[in-house]
Design a protein around this nucleic acid. Structure first.
Length: 162
DNA sequence: AACATTTGACCTAT
DNA sequence: ATAGGTCAAATGTT
């Protein structure tokens, strides 16, 4: 049909386990998970959301680490960023990205927050003061900062004892 | 039949 | 309370 773009292949098999419509986006967001290692070894998840601005652009958010071993072949395919990284096919360069959520990143040292430029979406009674932090290059930054394993409980644990 | 996807309900975090 | 995220049953496909 007219559908040209489908979720790009990353080299891993993903099983779709949910889909939800996101406020502020015209298209629903798909939730994927590693098709192997039942619900135990592979905490790797993947989020796919197409931008309402560019329906041809898919915002893929990877999170978690891959514990699956891909046979015994050389990694010809560049493995996606381990932690969370956003990969898009093309950047509009007109407006920043909708918004990123810190989610359940408890091990993150520096928090990476983004804000939507869509003016004011919220406003249902209470409007909590959000800490708007502009990030220059989250993708590279995160990759560099997170090149270590999360299992390393070295300094991050000291942030909050309780 | 087995597996993956679909869809609504349920749960959690904000 | 709301938006977002996950689960689970049903359905479809291989």
């Amino acid at each position: 049909m007219g559908n040209t773009e489908v979720p790009p292949e990353d080299g891993y098999s993903w099983r779709k386990y949910g889909q939800k419509e996101i406020l502020g986006s015209k298209f629903p967001r798909g939730y994927y998970r590693c098709t192997h290692q039942k619900l135990n070894n592979c905490p790797a998840k993947k989020q796919v959301q197409r931008l309402d601005n560019d329906p041809y652009t898919f915002e893929v958010t990877y999170r978690g680490d891959h514990t699956c071993m891909m046979s015994s072949s050389a990694p010809s395919l560049p493995p996606p960023p381990p932690s969370e990284a956003m990969s898009t096919c093309s950047l509009p360069a007109s407006q920043p990205l909708p918004h990123l959520l810190p989610m359940d990143i408890k091990e993150s040292v520096g928090d990476l927050y983004n804000v939507t430029p869509h003016g004011n979406v919220s406003g249902a009674g209470s409007s909590p003061p959000n800490n708007y932090v502009d990030y220059p290059i989250v993708t590279d930054l995160v990759d560099t900062l997170f090149n270590s394993d999360i299992n390393n409980n070295n300094s991050i644990n000291f942030m909050f004892s309780s």
